[in-house]
Amino acid sequence: MLETPLRRRPEFYLCAGPTQSRVLPCELESAAVARRLVAAVLDRWELPELTERAELIVSELVTNAVLHARTGGASVRVVVTRVHGDRVQVAVTDLDQRPPTLVEAGPDEERGRGLALVAAVSESWGCERRAWGKRVWAELARS
C-alpha cells in the first residue's frame, strides 16, 4: 500500500491583497506568532531582505502592547501592509489610548530599548490614537 505524505496545515492562510492581519491574545507568547506571521507575509511578497527588521519591529510592538497597555487581557491586532512596491508597514493595535513613550534606557537597565530599536531599524514610525485605543506602526523599505 502506498502511503501519502502527511501535509502540514499552514499556520497562516494569507489573502491575495496588500494587507494581512491577525488578532492575537494580549500575552507575551503572541510576539513569536507575530514574528512568524511577518516572515510568512514577506516571503509571499518576495521581500525576504525586510524579514529580520520587520520581525524585530513586530516583536517589540507586541511586547510593548502586552507589557504596557492596560487592557485587562484583551487582544492585539497585528497588521502588515504593502504600502507601495518594496515599502511595508507593520502595525500593532491595542485598546489602551496612552501613546508609547520613547525613553533613553541606561546601560544597566534591562528594559526600555524597544521603541529606540524600532526607530533605529525603520524608515519611520508613529502612533495614532483611536476612539477605542491606539495603533503603533513602523515602515520599512529595501535599502
Rank of each mutant, 00 (worst) to 15 (best):
H84D: 11
V33P: 00
V83M: 14
V41T: 07
R8Y: 05
E123A: 00
V38F: 02
L2G: 12
L95Y: 05
V78A: 07
H84P: 00
S75M: 08
R87Y: 07
T101H: 04
R70I: 12
E52T: 14
T63Y: 03
Q89Y: 07
V66Y: 03
V121I: 08
V33C: 01
E55K: 15
V88N: 15
E3R: 12
P48K: 15
S124E: 07
K134E: 08
T19M: 09
V80R: 13
V88H: 13
S30T: 06
V88E: 15
A119Q: 02
V92Y: 02
A138N: 08
H84Q: 11
S143P: 15
E27C: 00
G133M: 15
V88W: 14
A34Y: 13
F12G: 04
E60A: 07
R82W: 01
L14R: 11
E110P: 10
A40I: 05
V79W: 14
E49Q: 04
V58A: 08
P25H: 04
L42C: 04
A138C: 04
V79Y: 13
R70F: 13
G72W: 14
A131W: 09
P100E: 02
A32D: 09
L67W: 04
L61C: 01
S122Y: 04
R35G: 07
Q89K: 15
S122N: 03
V66F: 05
Q97E: 04
M1S: 15
V41N: 03
V83P: 01
R9Y: 09
R44Q: 01
L50I: 02
L140P: 04
R77P: 01
D96P: 08
A91L: 15
G114I: 09
E110R: 14
E123M: 00
R87K: 14
V88P: 07
A54K: 12
A141C: 03
R130T: 14
C26L: 03
V90G: 05
A91T: 13
V78H: 10
G114E: 02
P107C: 00
I57G: 10
L102V: 06
E52S: 15
L2K: 15
G72V: 11
S30H: 05
S143K: 10
V118S: 04
L14A: 11
W132Y: 11
P18M: 01
G112F: 15
D108G: 14
V136M: 07
V103K: 05
R35V: 06
E3W: 04
R36Q: 02
V23Q: 13
A40T: 02
A34P: 13
L95D: 05
L37I: 05
